[in-house]
Design a protein around this nucleic acid. Sequence first.
DNA 1: CATACATGTGTAATCGATTAACTACGCCCT
DNA 2: AGGGCGTAGTTAATCGATTACACATGTATG
Lengths: 321, 321
Amino acid sequence: MKDVAQHAGVSTATVSRVLNGHAAPTPETRVRVLAAIEELGYRPNALARSLRTTSTQTLGLVISDLLNPFFAEIARAVEDEARSHGYCVVIGNADESAEQEATYVRTLLDRRVDGLLLCPATDDPSLVREVSAGGVPLVLLDRTVRGATCPVVRADGSEALTALARRLVGAGHTRIGVIAGPPNTSTGRERTDVLTGSLGGLAQVVHGDFRQESGSQAAAKLIEDGATALVAMDNLMGLGALGEIRARGLQIPHDIALAVFDDQPWFPLLDPPITVIAQPTVEMGRAAARSLLALINGQQPDDVRLTAKLVLRGSLGEAEL
Amino acid sequence: MKDVAQHAGVSTATVSRVLNGHAAPTPETRVRVLAAIEELGYRPNALARSLRTTSTQTLGLVISDLLNPFFAEIARAVEDEARSHGYCVVIGNADESAEQEATYVRTLLDRRVDGLLLCPATDDPSLVREVSAGGVPLVLLDRTVRGATCPVVRADGSEALTALARRLVGAGHTRIGVIAGPPNTSTGRERTDVLTGSLGGLAQVVHGDFRQESGSQAAAKLIEDGATALVAMDNLMGLGALGEIRARGLQIPHDIALAVFDDQPWFPLLDPPITVIAQPTVEMGRAAARSLLALINGQQPDDVRLTAKLVLRGSLGEAEL
DNA sequence: CATACATGTGTAATCGATTAACTACGCCCT
DNA sequence: AGGGCGTAGTTAATCGATTACACATGTATG
């Protein structure tokens, strides 16, 4: 910057003013400065700028698993929304590990992100409290924690799950295997509670960890226990369950019915296409980013609850169509 | 930091030394400082530190499309490798747009990343030159640009593609539709060149843009032109092609054969399972991160070429098994 | 013609860390 | 006792920006 100032025959203050679009500098000075900038290929140092202004124009996003297309899509949506408001997004991948999540949150705070979006790995509120104590704007996404005091953006699958339960019962299933998420995550618990609640005593629950491998194992166990229908509570566990079903040579829906929470582009391509509960991922990401930006601007955004929808495709059997 | 120093009755220099593990401070001073840090909940400002040290311990990664699981997996691998060396990764999503790619590259440079990993959207070398001119360590990943002067990490699919061509010809196909990537990307061009080269005059090429929608359109066109086999040059276009095949009620492999470049966890679950050319994504990501770190440490890493492998699964017909 | 006021630019403090250079304090040895 | 030396700690410059305040100049006003 000093070089630019010298080159243009002005002070660094003037260069800074030109850079920040202040009213002060003469059009004439402005072009001289811009010319010098161009000539020297100068680019301002964002670190120095942020240090001085205490604003990084950056949002932190800590997601549970980058390989889960659900979160990838959320990340994409957050980024789009943020960019359209002049913000950048730094993504941290917690890999469903509370420890790694905490590490990332701290790293992002150390880098002074202007706000943080968090998909908490567990419902333990301590990390959230730590962030709030630091006074950093925080919005929870997809999952919440016990006694959360910050805005939460998530999808409500209750209606869809109840409708799904009705279908399953209506089709005469009496042993329904539920491949649930970890009980210490809000989505893991709530979805399972709603579904088992509406299924009365027909449900058998096995907990997985939102990953493919656990889906296979849970499916194996449930099939051996005589389940005639499976419901996987996220797309990766659904993938695992599907693999297990195929590996055992079972036919969907003849031998076993299947439904999955989360839609994926390839679910309709299976034979039969898989019935799912589709979440409005893009809207969730955008809404979360908007809430966070509002919070940063001193507003008090409300919680957002979007609705997940049951999409019937055939994997529950003829009854559904 | 000043507060901490005051609290511990020392100067900021001493606090800094404790923080950075210098030898100087007495064990006694050390505990006093650490206690003060603990008590005040102090966290060092990474911006200030980086400004002073000119090192951010951060790598920039600009990928072509976050929603493409291939790149998501790469990102994940890069991150893992970087983290194990004490580096953080900031991901920028170019969305297959050269313009957005340039924006991200500049943003990352402004934030003074210690090095940059780039999956170039086009083979135009100007952006690469801009980065090199700035003296920032740069490694290209998956794709290269014309006359690249920096290390490149990529997968070599030539053997696999040649083997695939042999299979297709051997199975008696005479009209083979190739759903190619954009001709201005190195992967788009090279893969297509190799395949059409080994297919002699049997190939008909339609270019897509590495996204699902273009895969559907290309497949539609090729099917209408009488293709009896399709090869999609990336997983998203493969997904699109599959959709089109299903929409037309065609049976794989009876009515049409299909192979896809890039493996995905759900390809084996289709009926029949899809034959693919699998890339060593995780190794690519890790290798790229390692090369970049080497470059940052003043070494001169060689280009890395990993081998993609043909995985036969059934979607080419009985001939393959 | 002096005073007030607007306008464009420069000076220098500041953000929060790191670190070279310096100081103060023992301790040991002759 | 005095000089040499090692060690623990302080002072202050520095990184590259922003911005309050000061200053100089020009223009309008009483």
